[in-house]
Design a binder for these strands. Structure first.
Lengths: 217, 217
DNA sequence: ACCTGAACACCGTTCAAGT
DNA sequence: ACCTGAACACCGTTCAAGT
């Protein structure tokens, strides 16, 4: 009733009756095995043993289907854990745990992003971060800003994960990308530039810089 | 010859002969007017007055077409400008100018992201940042890390632009999202949380924190 | 070398019709 | 209320055939 087409909750199945949640269950399964391109109305209906048009009755069109699935992902992946004693540790732990969770399902996060529901995905983390920042003595406009800064770091890190190296069909090796002219008299830097960076190290580095700036202004 | 299917460069048009670059030109036009979902092989062929199969000859299949278009975007949007005297100002100006350029065409950036070519898009900026950091006395592993940290901020900011508020079909108003329990005794914070944040201010805030951490370790 | 036409195997969506 | 079948208007892609 929140988003779908069916105006009344189907109730507990009257025999062989299909329900909205059963459709979303099956959709979720296809999404995780075949990927988002493998999820089709017809394929979903086939998996459920009904005509394609039955999907329209229970969840609406494809956009509504994706919205419903995004909502599930939000419920499943939005949770965060906090640990540590001082504010800096606790805030960092929220960011790191959320990042770790989301990195296990990058395609599901991409779906939420595609549906424009990232804000909803982050709402639990936002609440926790607000609490921690308040406890650390930060509030007002700078607290609101700080929360979003930390969360942007997380989602940016997840959306860009594994993006860095995928150079399709191109033979641009790192050796070609960087020449001695780019870093004269700095062979060590050149060496580091030509190797893929450790994404977790990068995240921790940036996070530390931001959290430090947030807590001690 | 870099990516496409045609093995020899078509040369200058022999009369009515179609060329790879003409196809990409038309593709680019459709991309900017109709969006990525409006770009189809058949529609592209129709615009050029040829059969759909002619596209396959010149650029290959749809993936190759999108790759070719991404390559164009990389060439057009990758450039950066540097201004300012001190390192902090110059590094920040690179990040801000790149962000501003990319924000004008978020859908084109999304295409580059989709095709896994973000690294290529950022290569010019990387070169400039490496130079500036070296001049500022930063090098080795921390310079490589710092460059990527700044660039991740930029792309994250662009990919998330306008994502924050899009709450589709849902009636979750900010008033419902946040209750007094989330920020007890802090009405000012609550006020800020319920309003959409200024994305540019957020970017500048985070960028300043990172650049500061980078230049003065 | 370059392009067409026909064909195949898919899509999402609508709508009248059934029970 | 719930579901089917047929139909429409699309897709991307392959392949034999033309010039």
């Amino acid at each position: 009733m929140t988003t779908g087409a069916g105006q009344a909750a189907p109730g507990r199945g009257s025999g062989a009756g299909l329900s909205r949640s059963q459709v979303l269950d099956a959709g979720m399964e296809i999404l995780e095995t075949e990927g988002i391109d493998g999820l089709t109305i017809r394929g979903l209906a086939g998996k459920l043993g009904v005509a394609a048009t039955a999907i329209y009755w229970h969840v609406g069109d494809k956009h509504a289907l994706l919205d419903g699935l995004a909502e599930r992902v939000i419920g499943e992946l939005g949770a965060v854990s906090v640990r540590g004693r001082d504010p800096v540790t606790r805030i960092s732990s929220v960011a790191r745990s959320l990042r770790a969770t989301l990195l296990e399902r990058p395609d599901l996060v991409a779906l939420v992003h595609r549906q424009g529901r990232i804000a909803a995905l982050f709402q639990p983390a936002r609440r926790v971060l607000v609490r921690e920042l308040t406890a650390a003595g930060v509030d007002g406009a700078s607290a609101a800003l700080a929360v979003q800064a930390v969360l942007n770091l997380v989602i940016g890190s997840v959306l860009l994960d594994r993006q860095v190296e995928r150079q399709p069909t191109q033979r641009e090796t790192p050796e070609e990308l960087w020449s001695i002219a780019d870093a004269p008299d700095a062979p060590e830097l050149l060496e580091h530039l030509s190797h893929p960076i450790d994404e977790e190290e990068l995240f921790d580095y940036t996070l530390a810089a931001v959290v430090r700036a947030v807590v001690q202004p």
